[in-house]
Nucleic acid binder design. Sequence first.
DNA 1: GTAATATCGGACCTGAGAGGTCGGACTTCC
DNA 2: GGAAGTCCGACCTCTCAGGTCCGATATTAC
Lengths: 149, 149
Amino acid sequence: MLRLSKKADYALMAMKHLALRGDRGSSSAREIAEQYDIPIELMAKVLQRLVQRGLLASHQGTRGGYQLSRQPRLMTVADVIQAIDGPVTVTACSSDDSQCDQYAKCNVRDPLWRVRERILAALGECTIAELAFDPPQAAPRAAVLHTNL
Amino acid sequence: MLRLSKKADYALMAMKHLALRGDRGSSSAREIAEQYDIPIELMAKVLQRLVQRGLLASHQGTRGGYQLSRQPRLMTVADVIQAIDGPVTVTACSSDDSQCDQYAKCNVRDPLWRVRERILAALGECTIAELAFDPPQAAPRAAVLHTNL
DNA sequence: GTAATATCGGACCTGAGAGGTCGGACTTCC
DNA sequence: GGAAGTCCGACCTCTCAGGTCCGATATTAC
């Protein structure tokens, strides 16, 4: 129902947490998990995935932990979501690999593909910095302009 | 993973089908289901739901069937999706009823709520008429301008 | 060197819900 | 009035997200 997974939720929470922490050391999986009441092992799994995808840097050992690999301004929620849940596919017929029974006869594939582009654009506009340092919604951001449609 | 359900897919296919048919009579569930290789009973169920939500009008009996209740210009994919899957909730903490364990400690609720608004806006822009009479993507629609952000 | 504390990576379990099915009620035509 | 054809609501099944467990590896403190 167009909802993002809990793992993605957790990932975004962790990203914001690490963004707020900034350059002052790293946070362990346990620390983050306890702060937000997230199962530790699950949080760890999510963080590992973010490392694999290059969004986080990890450091093993006693005083290890995780920290952002880039400036929070340079990472978007779209990056995080796609790192965790894979590519955003609004519809089952994802481009080429047609595991959809109706692929041949589907009449809404192309229009929905454009809808997907719009959603992806919306997610790509919101950066981690925006998550963390929260420009209050009173600032309406003038207009949402993006050219890739 | 931010994918809409198959029921919603089927609903959109049916809406487009009925829009193309226009005022020239109604289509039965069987007719639509067979055309797109959808299980008949499931298609029926989806159509019923659309009737309940006021998007379709149904007519029982031997020559019964379904037809749009309004002009296709006046219905959007957001309407259809919400009719089938309920309100679009990107995150688990849907506004008031907080069935999310992290509700109290969640730090990304408000920013994600704004993301939800954007997605909803994107879905609300695409009408059924646009689905059916498909302005070819060669026409770039100048830009996507919406003020409600 | 050893213990403590981290990150890693896989296999495994479980409950909710999407996807699909069945039987009954209703309306129209002959 | 009966048969054909439809809508309609309750029921079932099976996938998979969400969560758990365990062992391996790496780093640091003592």
